[in-house]
Amino acid sequence: MTILLRNISNASVPTSPSPEMMSFMNLVLGIFILVSLLVGTVSNGLFLWVMWVKMKRTVNTLWFSHLIFTYLLFCTFLPFFAIYSFFGFHWVFGTVACKLIISLFSLTMFTTVFLLTVISLDRYLLICHPFWSQHHRTIPQAQRFVAGVWLCSLVLSVPYMAFQETRAMESGRTKCASNFAFSSDWDKPEAQALRHRVHVALFVVRFLLAFLLPFLIIMSCHCRMVWEMKKRRLARNRKPFWVLVAAVASFFICWIPYHLYHGSTTHWESFRTTRQALRVAMAVGECFNFCFTPILYLFIGEKFQQVFKTSILALLKRGFMDIPIIPMDNVNVNEAGHQSCSISSLELKISCGNNRPSP
């Protein structure tokens, strides 16, 4: 009876999706990637052009211009992933493309999270240590930090250039995979053991440096900023603050499936259905973060109807301007209901008129 019930259970609950279902999922995923390519290229390219050509160069625009450049760089290799999905995850571009594309993908991932961390730290120093920021927060200094971010990301991406190879599978497909053992015999027990150890080590390093530690730093900065604003009764332009919150939240929410998927490849070999679902969620999250998040910059902190009445340049200027931190006690409201102030303190040195949106 026990054997019969077990057989009935195994027959009624499939262990993996059918080939027809997988083909449909691959088709839908490939179409979504192509749509993301179109949206991401247009939006990121337009935003980058506006920030580099139309807007005044400031520390804040420098941070976000490089952040959006990483988004645009990600879009350049989306066609490869779309074709990879259409072919049922059969890699047809060769070993060199496999190494190059995965390395560039790693470069954009590390650069994005490092830039978000630097932006959060910069915002923290601007609010909590204004004296220090006034003397050290300069464009040349910010450029050095940006160069350091790209250099660190490049160093962390080099191992993927070495490890990535193409592997011929028994089904006749070719897979772009990591050969952590540098062995041509993929099924050799010694090579599999070494490959597993190196894989786990790299996963832990990537999870710590590209997710957990930046998340803790960013959350600490934001909590301290909110506490400082309430303590000192500081007013702020809300749009730049919410643009940063949207960028950070989008990154961490969209990249959770990525780390769960790669964590599953180290220990959850038996859960094929879970891994396949995580792979789809990972691709959707990555595309949304790099291609659709910049569109949120226009809508965040704005009334929906106002977005369509205001130029993109004005919306981006309000979103990426350096935040003027103003004590609430010094903020007056004029007859029209707009805030106005005049401050000559050593700490802030801000002089502002009516807070009207740019035309």
Rank of each mutant, 00 (worst) to 15 (best):
L4N: 04
S9E: 11
S12D: 07
S12V: 14
P14Q: 12
P14A: 06
P17A: 09
S18T: 06
F24T: 03
V28R: 12
L29P: 03
L29T: 09
T41H: 14
T41C: 15
L48T: 04
W52T: 12
V53H: 09
M55L: 15
R57S: 12
T61N: 10
W63F: 14
S65K: 15
L67C: 09
T70H: 13
T76P: 02
A82V: 12
Y84M: 08
S85R: 05
F87Y: 11
F93Y: 08
L100H: 11
I102M: 14
S103A: 12
S103E: 10
L104P: 01
T108D: 10
F110K: 00
T111G: 06
T112I: 03
L115D: 00
L116K: 08
Y124S: 02
C128L: 00
F131R: 10
Q134Y: 14
H135F: 11
H135I: 07
H136Y: 10
P140D: 01
A142C: 09
Q143I: 08
G148C: 04
L151T: 07
S153E: 01
L154W: 13
V155C: 14
Y160G: 02
E170D: 15
S171T: 09
K175W: 12
S178A: 13
S178T: 13
F182R: 11
S183W: 09
S184H: 13
D185P: 00
D187C: 04
Q192P: 06
L194W: 11
L194R: 14
R197E: 08
V198D: 02
F207P: 01
F207D: 01
L208R: 11
A210C: 00
F211C: 02
L213H: 01
L213I: 15
F215L: 11
I218V: 12
M225H: 08
M225E: 03
V226G: 03
E228G: 02
K231P: 02
K239H: 11
K239G: 05
V243A: 07
L244F: 10
V245L: 08
V248Q: 14
V248L: 12
F251T: 02
I253L: 15
W255D: 04
I256M: 15
I256A: 10
L260M: 10
Y261G: 01
T266H: 01
H267K: 13
W268N: 10
S270M: 07
S270V: 05
R272G: 03
T274P: 03
R275D: 06
L278R: 06
A283D: 09
V284E: 04
C287F: 10
F288E: 02
F288C: 08
F290L: 12
C291E: 08
C291A: 11
P294A: 03
Y297W: 10
G301D: 09
Q305S: 08
Q305I: 07
V307D: 02
F308Y: 12
K309E: 05
T310C: 07
S311T: 15
L313N: 06
L313C: 03
F320C: 00
D322C: 05
I325D: 05
P327R: 05
N332Y: 07
N334S: 06
H338V: 02
H338T: 05
S351M: 08
G353F: 07
P357L: 13
